[in-house]
Design a protein around this nucleic acid. Structure first.
Lengths: 169, 169
DNA sequence: GTTTTCACTGGGCATTTTGTTCAGCAGATC
DNA sequence: GATCTGCTGAACAAAATGCCCAGTGAAAAC
């Protein structure tokens, strides 16, 4: 599964102005609507695009504090801990990792004081041995995908040059 | 900025089936289209909804390996390091944090071997003193927002009960 | 070298959705 | 009691979508 240049441009376009729709996207890319639609369908059914869910800002929801917690888990308690963390709304994300911790999770809270509550909630569970928390101060690079898409498209491009400007159609 | 129950339901609906559009959403929520539209506009302009960009799966792009790197930065080199990391496509996210590291970043790579290249690229920069990397094995809780939205809506509900089912209209 | 396959073009058409506006109504506020 | 605000239900033109088609050129298969 790779993406070519047109896929990349389409993704970029949608990432920057998601509301434009297929028709407008096809216009801007200079391709037929059917092409844009087919590409989009392929990207979606191929799993490259997971969906178009709204990106919600936790801060605007009243949760301006973000933190990352590294958790050390008691052997064999993994499943229980996962289930526990999944039940906490303030846990936005959970990964199991190699390295010095066993799990890494992203938390949000209403305030620094509230973060204490959340952390207690998270780590106050039997299977968790130890937790170390890093509070986020700044977010110089918010979650992004365009640069990677660009690179992926460029890489595929080297492998599969694609058609060279169909003269007519 | 808070959200009431209707806002919450709208967000949930859009999070689960983003393609439905305002009209269909209003139908499912049992409200007038104008209401759904107004709520959506308010959520968007109020910053609760950042956008509707496509969620791209890095794995499907050829980057199945995810890792988190904790970086220790030389005093006064923060800005340079930020700029450097921002220029690396494989850096999907970067935070400055309290705690034992100074920065935490999310990386992706084409393979474990490729991860070495990415890490070298990331940490091979003057301002970075030390880096420790945790490779993601599983992702039991993918980035999610619905549970938090639900809680936020419930909380606001307590504070502001909202209108109690307008009889007619 | 010839045939087949495939992606793209450009068009049409019915249906759906959007953008916008309007008057009327009810709860909350003053 | 008067005003403000948010919701309803409706209308309309404009736009987008879903779906169809034949034609074309490049690449792949034979």
């Amino acid at each position: 599964m790779g993406i070519d240049r047109l896929d990349g441009q389409l993704l970029e376009l949608l990432a920057e102005e998601p509301r434009i729709g297929v028709l407008e996207a096809s216009r801007r890319l200079g391709v037929a609507r059917g092409t844009a639609q087919a590409r989009l369908d392929r990207l979606t059914s191929g799993g490259v695009i997971r969906g178009f869910g709204p990106e919600v800002d936790p801060a605007a929801l009243g949760y301006p504090v973000t933190a990352f917690a590294t958790l050390e888990i008691k052997q064999g308690q993994g499943a229980d801990v996962r289930a526990h963390l999944a039940s906490v709304p303030e846990v936005l994300e959970l990964h199991t990792t190699t390295g010095m911790g066993d799990m890494l999770c992203r938390l949000v809270a209403r305030s620094n004081a509230d973060l204490q509550r959340v952390i207690d909630l998270v780590v106050g569970f039997d299977g968790i041995v130890r937790a170390s928390t890093a509070i986020v101060m700044e977010n110089p690079v918010p979650l992004r995908i365009v640069p990677l898409v660009r690179q992926a498209a460029r890489d595929s491009d080297t492998v599969r040059p694609g058609r060279t400007t169909p003269t007519t159609g």
